[in-house]
């Protein structure tokens, strides 16, 4: 059976693809396409965060009794990432390529180190602690995530 780590990591890579398409559109000064692609990126990311915060993290917390540990840190990073996405969106709306490129670079690194922590540490913990609930949890996660 698929693991939480595999499923969620695959969704991370999907979000990367949207990010890249937006970046390329900015590089070729195709602002309308950039805005449309960035919107897809932001929507997929937001949904991913929501699914984690409303389904996966509470399941982990309920099972382990650890409420102020990694899940709390990840919630904090989600907040930072949401803020960065708003700043990038504002730069796109203002058609400011420099501001967009600096913010996008920051967003990318923040996002990738966040994904790394989840994929290397938190998801394996979830797979381990929630092993008995995977048959219910995985379809639920899949259902809620943007494919």
């Amino acid at each position: 059976m698929e693991s939480i780590r595999e499923l969620m990591a695959e969704k991370h890579r999907r979000c990367d693809d949207y990010f890249v398409t937006a970046e390329r559109a900015v590089a070729s000064a195709n602002w309308d396409k950039a805005s449309a692609e960035f919107e897809k990126f932001r929507d997929a990311m937001s949904r991913h965060f929501d699914v984690e915060e409303n389904i996966l993290f509470p399941a982990f917390e309920a099972h382990t009794g650890v409420f102020m540990g990694p899940t709390q840190v990840m919630r904090g990073e989600h907040k930072q990432l949401r803020e960065l996405m708003s700043v990038a969106e504002a730069a796109l709306a203002a058609r400011d390529a420099d501001d967009y490129s600096g913010t996008a670079e920051t967003l990318l690194i923040m996002l990738q180190q966040h994904n790394m922590k989840e994929e290397n540490v938190l998801y394996p913990m979830c797979d381990q602690h929630l092993a008995e609930h995977l048959d219910v949890l995985l379809p639920q996660l899949k259902n809620e995530l943007i494919s």
């Binding site: 803020e83 420099d98 600096g102 690194i109």
Partner: peptide, 11 residues
């Protein structure tokens, strides 16, 4: 703390 935005990496 989310009230003062940090300058982006290229700044």
């Amino acid at each position: 703390q989310g009230r003062v935005m940090a300058p982006n990496m290229k700044k």
